[in-house]
Write a protein that binds this DNA or RNA. Structure first.
Length: 422
RNA sequence: GUGGACGUAGCUCAGUUGGCAGAGCGCUUGGUUGUGGCCCAAGUGGUCGUGGGUUCAAGUCCCAUCGUUCACCCCA
């Protein structure tokens, strides 16, 4: 087809689907708002340098997945591939720390990565998430994780699992990696070709390999990262776990959980959707105590998560959970002619300003066609108006689910709509 | 970037060893004056992704190309 189409890896949220997206945003406002998080909205594009510094120049995201371009002034800009860097940039730029030592922020919006699309992955995708900036304590980690879990609970989703881990501070992590290399070196031949590559430049990613032989080697020989944590980090991790246990939040300690972004320290976590395909991370996050200072701010311990909206909607669909309310007309106005249409216009507008949804026919269709249309749109009531009704100042009001009909007028209609039935 | 699968009506899909392009759903209009849902009838609908090739003849066979999709890499 030569017709214009949306770009590969992008999708329209169609008029009859958008209610779900509105419900996601509403739940963000209500749930995060109830913990006194406030929404931030940052630009969808930033200087390329921000992401290069924030995410790590050699990460996959920065090295091959960013939508970057030069503007007319020759400056390199990038469509954001990730939220945290932008939020921290704004935090530093506007001197949030001058207002208070702690900030709790949520966001929702589109992100862009030039990858090959597949199930649960698009080039423009959407995330919501939170950043808790300014606390080093396990209460902060636990609150962030709790909020992620609460969100999924409130949607009604059942088939998911929380995995948590601690990867310690950068120093201990480095010792662990060196140790891991030393121990695995004799077994490098039995790893898959890809893992042999990963062995040198991305050792921790070995744990992500889906090859069962590689996993067997790791299970047999690899030391547990948790055994390499410093006393403080270990204690921190245990306290986070305890806080989750106190709240009755089930979790799996997964020492193999290594997240892809370079900036994580200590706590990392992921919520895996059990009904999803290869891309099964509903939500991922963790602590990033060094990012603020790396981007030029004062050292500020922080923790947050990001969750994929498309993946959430897929998971809900897989469990046949309906999420959000599809709006239907409270009243469908079926007028027989132009005079009937204009006769009660003020009444309909008044009802609309009271908050009712009033649909009218604009195609001068037959009564039969209008009744069909009202039924298709799942309207609660239909008002039928012809010349007789116009003369008497009343109209016929029909309740579609029962089929009952009465005469109504501009005054009585208000109470009937409020009551919802005849 | 690599590999597999698939492109026929708005949607879901049939289409035989090459021989006039189909169904269901949807949409529109009717089934006695101004009444929906069920039912019935009619109507609407397609450059068979695109471009070449083989053939008397291609939706069907061959090549190329584009698109979609799933998986890898990686991540939400």
């Amino acid at each position: 087809m030569g017709a214009l189409k949306s770009i590969k890896g992008t999708r329209d949220v169609l008029p009859w689907e958008s209610y779900q997206w509105q419900a996601v945003e509403k739940l963000c406002r209500e749930l995060f708002g109830s913990y006194f998080y406030q929404e931030i909205r940052t630009p969808v594009f930033e200087k390329t340098e921000l992401f290069a510094r924030g995410i790590g120049e050699f990460s996959d995201i920065v090295s091959k997945e960013m939508y970057s371009f030069q503007d007319k002034g020759g400056e390199w800009l990038t469509l954001r591939p990730e939220y945290t860097a932008s939020v921290i940039r704004s935090y530093i730029q506007h001197h949030f720390e001058q207002q208070s030592a702690l900030h709790k922020i949520w966001y929702a919006g589109p992100l862009f990565r030039q990858e090959r699309p597949q199930a649960g992955r698009q080039r423009q995708f959407h995330q919501f998430g939170i950043e808790l900036i300014g606390s080093e304590f396990p209460e902060a980690d636990a609150e962030v994780i709790t909020l992620a879990c609460e969100f999924y609970k409130k949607t009604g989703l059942k088939e998911w699992e929380l995995h948590i881990n601690s990867i310690g501070n950068i120093h201990d992590r480095q010792t662990y990696i060196e140790h891991l290399r030393k121990i695995l070196k004799p077994h490098i031949e039995s790893l898959c070709p890809l893992c042999q590559q990963r062995f040198d430049n991305n050792t921790l990613r070995l744990f992500d390999c889906k090859n069962s032989e590689c996993q067997a080697v790791l299970d047999l020989h690899a030391p547990n990262i948790l055994d390499f944590l410093s006393k403080e980090d270990k204690e921190h991790f245990e306290q986070v776990c305890d806080l989750l246990t106190y709240q009755g939040i089930p979790y799996v300690i997964n020492p193999k959980l290594v997240r892809g972004l370079d900036y994580y320290t200590r706590t990392t976590f992921e919520i895996k959707g059990k009904t999803l395909g290869a891309q099964d991370a509903l939500c991922g996050g963790g602590r990033y105590d060094n990012l603020v200072s790396e981007l030029g701010g004062k050292p500020t311990p922080s923790v947050g998560f990001a969750a994929g909206i498309e993946r959430l909607l897929i998971a809900l669909e897989n469990e046949t959970i309906s999420f959000g309310d599809y709006a239907c007309p409270d009243l469908y106005v079926a007028s027989m002619d132009l005079n009937s249409y204009s006769g009660f216009l003020k009444t309909w507008n008044e009802l609309r300003s009271m908050g009712f949804i009033i649909e009218t026919d604009l195609q001068r269709r037959s009564l039969k066609a209008m009744m069909r249309d009202a039924h298709k749109k799942n309207a609660r009531f239909v008002a039928v108006i012809g010349s007789d009704e116009l003369k008497s100042g009343t109209f016929i009001l029909k309740q579609l689910d029962t089929g009952a009909e009465i005469k109504a007028d501009p005054v009585s209609i208000k109470d009937i709509l409020k009551k919802g039935s005849l």
